[in-house]
């Protein structure tokens, strides 16, 4: 499996990562190498194997419907890059 520049650019956009122009080639090579490595899997017949998403086949526990968290805005916004009037600020979004 070999990735080209367009693939890298497309993936980088999906992942919202700015990749410097001069690094694209290296990413393409590294990613292609990794995909070659993982392609070893394709040799194995897994037709009837149930995928294993979790180490143990445990099931989801249910939480009681109780309000346990109060207003922590001041504390939680101490780490925010930009806040005004209690709102997180981002560059204008056009819907």
């Amino acid at each position: 499996m070999s990735l080209d520049r367009t693939d890298v650019e497309k993936i980088a956009h999906l992942a919202r990562l700015n990749i410097a122009e001069q690094d694209i080639q290296e990413y393409a090579e590294n990613l292609s190498n990794i995909l070659d490595l993982v392609d070893q899997m394709q040799a194995v017949d897994t037709q009837d194997i149930t995928p294993m998403a979790h180490p143990m086949d445990a099931i989801q526990r249910l939480r009681l419907d109780e309000v346990t968290e109060g207003n922590q805005r001041d504390l939680l916004q101490t780490v925010a890059p930009a806040v005004e009037a209690g709102l997180f600020q981002v560059p204008k979004v056009i819907e």
């Binding site: 993982v38 899997m41 394709q42 194995v44 897994t46 194997i49 149930t50 995928p51 294993m52 998403a53 180490p55």
Partner: peptide
């Protein structure tokens, strides 16, 4: 999906 299937084989 393939990787999750392999995961079960390994387990």
């Amino acid at each position: 999906k393939k990787a999750l299937q392999i995961r079960r084989l390994i387990q």
